[in-house]
């Protein structure tokens, strides 16, 4: 075993005798593109709603609940899918989120939330993770679709424009502070600020 490793190392260290430097550089470049592309494609696949709801925990609970809300069906016909609200679109954030998401696959393997009751039991914890994330990124995902700069207060309801032109405009609050439960049922809100 030890010999094998040493031999491998030597092979890797030895300059190439058969291939030109140019070939190696270009070849490496092409291989890099292929791997990077594959990685990207894998991310694209996992960035779809079909992927999310391929797990019944996600389909039976969040997805079913989403169906009755404005983000599923509305007058404008624009739909928000799971990744629109849950996975940042920026590259670096995207990878960071994927790393965190692999812990969910763990959850699937060990069946942490495979019934409605278990999901309800965990909901407060999961929701709090999401609130913290959205609070920290100033509700980035909401703002990807709802741009404050283009909000027309005059065509909003009085309640909405009053709240949006004060604490939202001043940056004191962000979307998720006031719009918790916009897409799913809420957990027991005992002790949550503002409830």
């Amino acid at each position: 075993m030890k010999n094998f490793i040493i031999k491998m190392w030597q092979t890797i260290r030895r300059p190439s005798v058969h291939f030109s430097l140019g070939f190696l550089v270009i070849g490496g470049f092409i291989a890099g593109i292929i791997f990077w592309g594959g990685f990207n494609t894998a991310l694209e696949v996992t960035n779809t709603e079909e992927f999310c709801i391929s797990c019944h925990e996600m389909e039976d609970n969040p997805y079913e609940e989403l169906k009755t809300t404005i983000h599923f069906s509305n007058r404008s016909g624009v739909r928000a899918t799971c990744p629109d609200c849950h996975v940042p679109h920026k590259w670096t954030d995207k990878i960071a989120r994927k790393m965190q998401a692999s812990k969910e696959v763990w959850g699937k393997l060990f069946g942490t939330i495979n019934t409605r009751e278990k999901f309800e039991g965990k909901r407060r914890h999961l929701a709090e993770n999401e609130w913290t994330r959205l609070k920290a990124n100033d509700s980035l995902e909401c703002r990807n679709c709802h741009n404050f700069d283009y909000m027309d207060f005059t065509s909003q309801s009085t309640r909405a424009s009053e709240q949006h032109s004060t604490s939202l405009a001043s940056g004191e609050k962000t979307c998720i502070d006031c719009h918790k439960g916009i897409a799913h049922e809420l957990p027991d809100m005992e002790g949550v600020e503002g409830w």
Binding site: T68, S157, S167, G181, L186, G194, W195
Partner: peptide, 30 residues
């Protein structure tokens, strides 16, 4: 005098009271 679509009122939460409760009226002005 307003919409209440999807306002959750059940054992877990009361969305109405998040604006109309005594200790919420300063922020909500409701």
């Amino acid at each position: 005098p307003h919409k209440v679509r999807n306002y959750q009122v059940d054992l877990k939460v009361n969305k109405c009271m998040s604006c109309h409760a005594r200790n919420r009226t300063d922020e909500s002005q409701a």
